[in-house]
Amino acid sequence: MSRIKDAFNSNKAFIAFVTGGDPTIEKTKEFILEIEKAGADLVEIGIPFSDPIAEGPVIQEANIRSLSQGTTTDKLFDMVKELRQVTNIPLVFMTYLNPVFHYGYDKFFKNCSDCGIDGIIIPDLPFEEKPEVADVAVKYGIEVVSLIAPTSEDRIKTIAENSTGFIYVVSSMGVTGTRSQITTDLNSILASVKSVTDVPAAVGFGINTPAQAEKISKISDGVIVGSAIVKIIAQYGADATPHIYEYVKSMSDAVHNVK
């Protein structure tokens, strides 16, 4: 039943992120379909939050652009419902806990299920606080993605053992944003993960070139790219579609070439 599992089935996965409603809901829909056409295996849709503490400046600004356009959680549910008429690509929400909590956990996860969302990533919901949403997520079949950081050390196995969907391995210290170098010992983190679970592990934070994507795909089940795509949207706005296609194509080709 899991569309997320399908993303990792045949090859390494390329996961793309866009902020929902940046620059408009209509454009986000167009971008997501273009991202799928360019070869991405899963799309993360950011529900904008006023205070995204895990984001670098690029995605912070995208959140502001989207909120100032009047984007709301309900409008994004409607957008996903419309997208689901035309695509079967796995879709996960990425947002902070407060918009979910304030909406009401039951109502939020029910709406996710009704509109065709497959999973959710909540960066300010660490392992200890998972019980907030665990039961209701299971009830509606939404997979809550666990994050593992360079500092997780002795926590890696516990988190991995209890993960669903896929595991988001944070490549670097700090916040989201492109980096020229990733210095974390990803090999040992991924080895720890693999020793306890078959749940696929994708690496994100800082990845922006095909060479980086290829290198990281060799040791993981996929790569996640956000800021680099959002930067293209910031630069080209409503005209970003062909630029997104070109970039996502180059990245997903690099990832899919790794066997």
Binding site: P126, F127, E128, E129, A149, R155, V170
Partner: peptide, 13 residues
């Protein structure tokens, strides 16, 4: 209360 923070900070906290 609680500890609603990114995983990166959990071991430090």
């Amino acid at each position: 209360g609680g500890q609603y923070i990114p995983e990166t900070l959990m071991n430090e906290i």
